[in-house]
Design a protein around this nucleic acid. Structure first.
Lengths: 230, 230, 230, 230
DNA sequence: TATGAATGAGGGTTCATTCAT
DNA sequence: CATGAATGAACCCTCATTCAT
């Protein structure tokens, strides 16, 4: 069918252009190649850390030449920073939704904390945190960026939620900033730290996460909950 | 000339013995030299981190030769591990005493937690943690050793204290292992993490520590305290 | 079919010609583009020298693409050689005229030598000489070309002038080739060498040039001048 | 026999110390190894110039490891500078003596200039000059050092000689600094420049040197000689 | 036994050249 | 035909480790 066929082609072309078609060449601007490099870098950095990772390894793993990497990223540090930014975004995305869904305060906090700790203790996230920490002496802004947009943003979401629930009379929290940090520390802090130090070789089991989160939420509500929290 | 010759030899030996201090020298067994090497290594590692520290720097700082270091420590990694073991011991020493001193449960926990977080967030300890984490991908057992004998041992002390106070009726804790981890996370976890990521450029102020610890102990006692806890 | 085919070809050619602006485009034959490349190369080479100049810099400075440069010049070395040839021509052009103008032998030689040494010691010419010398181990023919068409051609002009003046009885020169080299060395050699070695950071002042040239011409005429030379 | 045996050993030790025995190890202080490195560097630098010479090539040519080179010389530039200093010293040594020997002014100047030009146009000296010139844009002090201690020192010797002979009435030179530069330029300048540019592929023949020097001295004495100069 | 000079693989980065577009 | 993104060898230099003394 000619007409449709024509439309199909137009559509395809439009999509390609929208996708920044792989054949369009602008130095250091091809997003596919950029992701390819970041993927290779991720595999190498996650395995051995920043210092022990060599640009040669990344070259091999990413399947691009060394020169190409330097077109997209000015230095090893810049490449690392871009990688961390990308990963951090993925880690902490879509946490907010869990606070919007219906349910009691206990249910909501449990749901939120469970998702948070599951992510924070996943293998790649643990490795990412290790790396960021490992270089934070030399690249301090990287640690800040990771922390601010990561744990801190999670706490920001919580604070807003606490404000809301305090107004509704379901919680009674004098300082929501402190409270959100406490919930974070209680539920996610310990397991994350255990993973980061390598004490837990694998991510914690669902049961362990549940136990930890439940204990944490118990304690949190014992302190801040009103009789209507459950 | 016999007499003179004998004197010469005696003199020489005496000098050697004097030089050798009271210790018998067996390869890699002189504890003074071992400490000397570790002291030098500490200065260098803390300043620049594991990867950036060169054995030449350590050699210079320790005042011993390269070969000697390799007699005492088989590799750079082994040296680093030995250093971390020594430092960890120092960091968590004498915490137990704070639980033995008199005072209410609240006072005791506040005292313990304040000392703990002060140590955990001191500059050298933060650096040590960063380094351990940074290399834990390559040296996994190092992180475990640090964690087990560090945070975990602190929790062990707490658990024993909680058992005692639960028996005395001052606390009501169903699972003291969980409770000790919770207290640790509430009081020390957040500030330590902030330091490790470099968000806090300097150790937290006494006021911030006090606020954090007080909030944590408040919450802890809201959950586990009996009417007799204060 | 001939007719149609012919038309097709004509059409195609017409389009090509239209596209190609007034110049016929044959690979590497557009003299304007060639000069454009050489101009860019000159700026870069003079600034940083042969080895430190990157083809990327030249590309940027010349405003043409990398591939285009390689169409016009087979390699970096070839490009450099072409540049030097062009510059050399400019450096030693219009020297001949100074020998044609009227004036005594002393005046003429002084005029000629002053112009010569001024040019030889100008910043770009000094840099060009340095570069040629610096690569002459790797590109021996380049040095020859520069020398033959440069200093040597100047000497050629002088020789002819000496022949003329000897016939006129104003000079008495048994070997004009030797004499022209001597005048060159006396007047231009020393200052040029000082500039090339960097002992003179800037080109010599007019006064220094005058002094040098005057001393040189003095000596020259003391040897070769007749009583009628002045 | 004890006594003799003892003497033998002492003697051996003394000799070792005097020779700076190859086995005496002080980092970067073994003069034999230092010369070995310089010899290797000389071969490589002279062949391809500064930029094109790679430290790996020098490593191979010198028969020492890369690390060792960097113990003796902090960088490629420092190594190059040391090499040039060594060569320059050798080039211009023992020129002074030729001015002390007996003979007429003409004979003395001819002797001095012949030796000077022979050295300046020898293959290694030509190559050394090329290298120094090639890098003088980036290492200006190197060119100065070479020039000052080289050509300039030769001119210094000449000036002193001219002063002496002027006092003796054999020469009549108003400005001996200018005169010495003139003699240098007349006799050595042209041939040296021809060699440096590669126009003369091999050092000039003895005949060519003699012709050049004779013409130069002729002219020099025509200008500055008194009737008693020969 | 303690020393430290020597090793050489490997570090991050640059750049002349090529070739698909 | 012009373009410039991609290549990858080669650059200078560092440093964990060894071993002759």
């Amino acid at each position: 069918m000619p007409a449709l066929s024509k439309n199909d082609q137009s559509l395809k072309k439009a999509v390609e252009v929208a996708d920044a078609a792989p054949n369009r060449r602008v130095a250091g601007q091809d997003p596919v190649k950029r992701q390819q490099i970041l993927d290779g870098a991720k595999r190498v950095f996650l395995c051995v850390g920043f210092d022990a990772a060599s640009m040669n390894d990344i070259t091999r793993e990413a399947g691009v030449s060394k020169g190409t990497i330097y077109v997209y990223f000015g230095s090893k540090e810049e490449l690392f920073g871009a990688l961390i930014d990308r990963e951090r975004t993925a880690i902490f995305s879509s946490l907010a939704e869990t606070l919007e869904e219906e349910g009691s305060v206990r249910e909501t906090l449990t749901r939120f904390a469970t998702l948070l700790v599951t992510r924070m203790t996943s293998v790649p996230v643990v490795r990412a945190q290790r790396m960021v920490i490992g270089v934070s002496e030399r690249m301090p802004e990287l640690g800040c960026r990771f922390y601010d947009a990561g744990p801190d943003s999670a706490k920001g979401l919580l604070s807003a939620y606490f404000d809301r629930k305090t107004k509704e009379g379901l919680l009674d929290i004098p300082d929501t900033a402190i409270a959100s940090r406490q919930l974070f520390d209680l539920c996610a802090g310990g397991l994350t730290r255990a993973c980061i130090f390598g004490v837990l070789e694998a991510p914690p089991s669902e049961a362990l996460i549940a136990e930890t989160v439940d204990s944490g939420v118990d304690m949190f509500l014992a302190r801040y909950g009103t009789h209507r929290a459950d």
